[in-house]
């Protein structure tokens, strides 16, 4: 029986960031989908069981914190790990991310190999990408 690769949802309003992360993770063997804001991410999570979420913070329509809170709420209730990745490096940003339900907080720019390593670690056992 062949396992399918872990499914990752890249959530960022910046098209270039979505493209970059999708390319990195796609090349590493992940199945990648994209959402341009938190609302799109929540909609996608309602219909697809993702294995990992990569979520920006500053986004229109629904910001990253609200997105993660909604992903963790009863409405969606996903148990999948969430990595918040942002340009925001104020002292309280990571705390807010963890309070919202994130598993890891990374500040951009993140080295490509580190991002892939983190995603593999967080999805270990969820597919055969690693």
């Amino acid at each position: 029986m062949t396992e399918s690769p872990p499914k990752v949802l890249v959530v960022d309003d910046a098209a270039t960031v979505r493209l970059y992360h999708s390319k990195l993770l796609g090349d590493a063997g992940f199945h990648v989908a994209e959402a341009a804001n938190g609302l799109e991410a929540v909609e996608a999570a309602l219909t697809t069981a993702f294995d990992l979420f990569l979520v920006d913070i500053n986004m229109p329509r629904m910001n990253g914190y609200t997105c993660v809170e909604t992903l963790r709420s009863e409405t969606v209730g996903t148990p999948a790990p969430v990595v918040m990745i942002s340009t925001e490096d104020r002292p309280g940003d990571a705390d807010r991310a963890y309070a919202a339900g994130a598993n890891l907080y990374l500040v951009k720019p993140v080295a490509a190999d580190r991002l892939v390593r983190v995603c593999r670690m967080l999805t270990a056992g969820r597919g055969d990408a690693a």
Binding site: N58, P60, N63, Y65, T66, G92, R96
Partner: peptide
Amino acid sequence: SDDAALRTAVAE
């Protein structure tokens, strides 16, 4: 602002 929803709404 430290409030992500506020700063993004203001930017919009």
